[in-house]
Simulated assay, not measured.
Amino acid sequence: MKNATKYIIGVMSGTSLDGIDIAYVKISNTENYKFEILKATTVPYTKQWKSALKDGFHLKGEALTQLDADYGIFLGEIIQDFITKNNISTIDYIASHGHTIYHNPTKNYTLQIGNGPYITSITGIKTICDFRSQDIALGGQGAPLVPIGDMLLFSEYDYCLNLGGFSNISLNKNNQRIAFDICPVNIVLNHYVAAFNIEYDDKGKIAASGEIDLTLLNELNSLPFYNDSKPKSLGYEFIVEIIIPIIDKYNLNTKDILRTFVEHVAMQIARKVESNPSKTILVAGGGAYNTFLIERIQWYTKTKLIIPNDTIINYKEALVFALLGFLKDEGQNNCLKSVTGASKDHSSGIIFTP
């Protein structure tokens, strides 16, 4: 529907567990899609929630169902608190990604917890969620979902790169949008930097002080995933079953692990972009603040990395999930088969009304 303007709260929790991003946005569709991020915040996870969500990967049956409900209540409460604190009165709906526990499209399943009906019941606002399941049912990867936002909201850039728990990239090729996960990033770096009793490596300073282990670097770079044909996506399974066992068998000190893995990430990302000084890459996600990682990526490519303002870095994904909700509510496609490999473009998500 043209000439539609909606006020939406987009909610995103990434695999790096750095917190819940909440963005109150205005999205308009006239000749082109336009957006304005009106209010935004990140709610850090407590140690208890970090532990619960990380351990969710190992839960079964009733315990996982309980976590889904508890997390849905938690999301509903923090969203309501965000609305109250910011005196927000006009909200058409909430679009929530939830938090990914499982993502294994090769076995036809994915799970994002954060029970939608609880969010609706607590806030009294229509809620749109579960954006991935339908795509997998249609033979797709259920990821990445952000490229529709890259195409409609950030088309002035040649590439859109997200550096979160995983890195993913999107671009236009042969008049269609393509996108794919590249490699793990913060989910691995944060795992190892925990040895220093900190949550993340500020600006990559610790990694910069380490030495590259070429044997580990070569083994990581030779993983079959990196040569798989697209579309493809990554989940936590790839970390616990492949990446961490490979790294740990080398018994390296933490600084050298971080240094080696940063080089691995930079090399893998640079492989996926054209080295052309006339082209640009928009960088978002927490990894955009990792100065050393950005330097290493730029070292491998002449294509210019663009670091936007803090609001875009921190809330681009929450913004895009607001857009996904906008498109779903308007009956427009929000999942692209050229990105996910699904059998058709489609409008994904489940709508809960109060």
Score class of each variant (00 low, 15 high):
Asn162Leu: 10
Leu189Ala: 09
Asp130Ala: 09
His58Gln: 12
Pro44Lys: 12
Asp92Gln: 05
Lys255Pro: 00
Ala208Thr: 07
Glu263Ile: 09
Gly287Val: 07
Ala194Arg: 14
Val262Pro: 01
Gln332Thr: 07
Lys205Leu: 15
Tyr7Trp: 06
Thr65Met: 14
Ala179Asn: 10
Asn104Ile: 12
Gly349Thr: 03
Lys85Phe: 03
Lys344Ile: 09
Asn309His: 11
Asn108Gly: 10
Phe180Val: 06
Val188Trp: 12
Pro147Ala: 14
Asp256Glu: 01
Phe225Glu: 02
Asn104Val: 13
Tyr93Cys: 00
Thr254Leu: 13
Thr123Ile: 13
Thr90Gly: 00
Glu199Asp: 14
Asp130Phe: 12
Ala342Val: 03
Leu171Lys: 12
Lys173Trp: 07
Glu241Met: 10
Asp21Ile: 06
Gly341Val: 10
Ser233Gln: 03
Ile125Met: 09
Ile8Phe: 05
Gly72Phe: 09
Leu324Asn: 11
Cys335Trp: 02
Ala4Asp: 07
Leu67Pro: 08
Phe321Arg: 06
Ser222Gln: 07
Thr65Lys: 15
Lys6Thr: 01
Leu324Glu: 03
Ser16Cys: 04
Gly325Cys: 08
Lys26Glu: 14
Ile307Thr: 11
Lys126Asp: 03
Gln141Lys: 13
Ile351Tyr: 04
Pro117Gly: 01
Tyr250Val: 14
Gly98Ala: 01
Ile78Cys: 03
Ile91Met: 01
Ala23Pro: 13
Ser13Gln: 02
Ile206Val: 15
Ala23Met: 08
Leu17Val: 07
Ile212Trp: 06
Leu319Thr: 09
Lys2Ser: 15
Leu305Cys: 10
Lys328Asp: 04
Thr123Lys: 10
Asn197Thr: 11
Tyr236Lys: 15
Ser133Leu: 09
Pro147Gln: 08
Ile125His: 06
Thr254His: 01
Ile113Asn: 03
Ile37Tyr: 03
Gly140Asn: 02
